[in-house]
Design a protein around this nucleic acid. Structure first.
Lengths: 224, 224
DNA sequence: ATTTCACTACGTAGAAATACGTTTTTTTGG
DNA sequence: CCAAAAAAACGTATTTCTACGTAGTGAAAT
């Protein structure tokens, strides 16, 4: 175990911060900082030349290529390399965006050295690292996200129109939709017309997209 | 604090399990089991008559109305009432479905009484309760979800067809799509035809839905 | 080397589905 | 009963779907 150190890359635009982290991690002799980069572009250049890199410590806000895009690049080009996000802020949108980009964990910069060490080793072993910060934000975000079911009052849509809207996101023709809803074909045409006025949408594809966007229909593929 | 106990409802189809939990929680004198129900339907009947209920302990698999739908009903009709899911299984799909339905936490039935007590008080105080089980599953689920970018080799789609597929999920007409792609209208028609054969899709709406389902297009509204 | 096959691009034509403006009938609520 | 809204209708234009053909290119086959 001890003879093969975890190879780490450090990406942050503040040189002083990088030095600090480097000094901190030098205390742990199973960690090894292989290189540092001041932004994503630099990392894209350095990463291929220093393989293997096991863990990348990544800042989010950087000039040039930012943390989100850099993380995405890493996880599609070097899927074996784990990314641990380091940030000043506990913004839930930032956290979730980083995780979706492929980061395996998220740590605040005000954490203790021991926490950082634990995060690095965990993320190297399991591919991900979770702490209270991350899980709380995730759950909270899941729990909000719902409650957006008032939008259709905004547009004055009635029950029939909603049902029609749902069926628009379907391979059914209007004729079949009319049968399904138990109304005449012409009536369905009325629904389409009033909806495209109210929602300012040009055609059926637009209606389908709208229905999905507003979660009227589930495509059954929401991993999360 | 102690003079106002947390009022709890217990929903599970196994009477014996309910009795066991009830006996367990009797030890904690700041908890109070107000009523028990053997499925969601029963809860819908009993909940209004026993207000307020602070926390519902909810099984997932039940005859009649299941845990998912019941949780959804509670969180839209009694948003002040927190739901703690109790399950035998640590299936990540179950966990995520319950959380999306509005549950504030997820606990395995093999947990200890102390864990259950902690979960109940936490969920009552914060509205949610997170443990390693939940956060691990959430992060793992976020980290998968990606990596499904090989499907189009399955179907032998080329670059042009992919671009066309993306544009299908758009309000553009085929004529406009042809202009965008810089090919003849008829050629675009070929793309449509070959795609509907390869993917066994009837019409353009189907293509649009497919494009979205496979994340070729982003509707920019993914809270999570 | 020529053929065969697969793939890509383009053309016409007609049928089916969808879109648009307007009007009439039916339902609904006060 | 009346007024307003919903449902149904007509005619026409546009878009989308389906089916039949032509042609070039490049790779594999013989």
């Amino acid at each position: 175990m001890e003879n093969e150190p975890i190879r780490i890359a450090l990406v942050d635009d503040h040189a002083l911060f990088r030095s600090g982290i480097a000094a901190l991690l030098k205390e742990f002799d199973d960690l090894m900082i292989v290189f540092e980069a001041s932004n994503g572009k630099e990392l894209q250049f350095l990463l291929p030349e220093h393989q293997p890199i096991h863990v990348v410590l990544m800042d989010i806000k950087m000039p040039g290529l930012n943390g989100f895009d850099t993380t995405e690049w890493i996880s599609s080009n070097y899927p074996q390399t784990a990314v641990l996000a380091l940030s000043m802020f506990d913004e839930s949108t930032d956290i979730i965006k980083m995780l979706k980009a492929g980061a395996g964990g998220y740590l605040l910069k005000e954490s203790s050295p021991e926490e950082l060490y634990a995060a690095i080793t965990t993320i190297h072993r399991d591919g991900f690292f979770s702490n209270e910060l991350v899980s709380d934000k995730l759950i909270k975000s899941l729990k909000s996200g719902r409650h957006i079911e008032d939008w259709y009052e905004q547009y004055n849509l009635n029950q029939k129109e909603l049902e029609f809207l749902r069926l628009c996101a379907t391979e059914l023709t209007y004729k079949q939709i009319a049968e399904t809803m138990g109304v005449a074909e012409r009536t369905v045409e009325n629904y389409r017309q009033s909806l495209s006025e109210k929602l300012e949408i040009k055609n059926r594809v637009g209606l389908a997209l709208f229905a999905i966007k507003n979660k009227l229909v589930s495509l059954g593929n929401e991993t999360l």
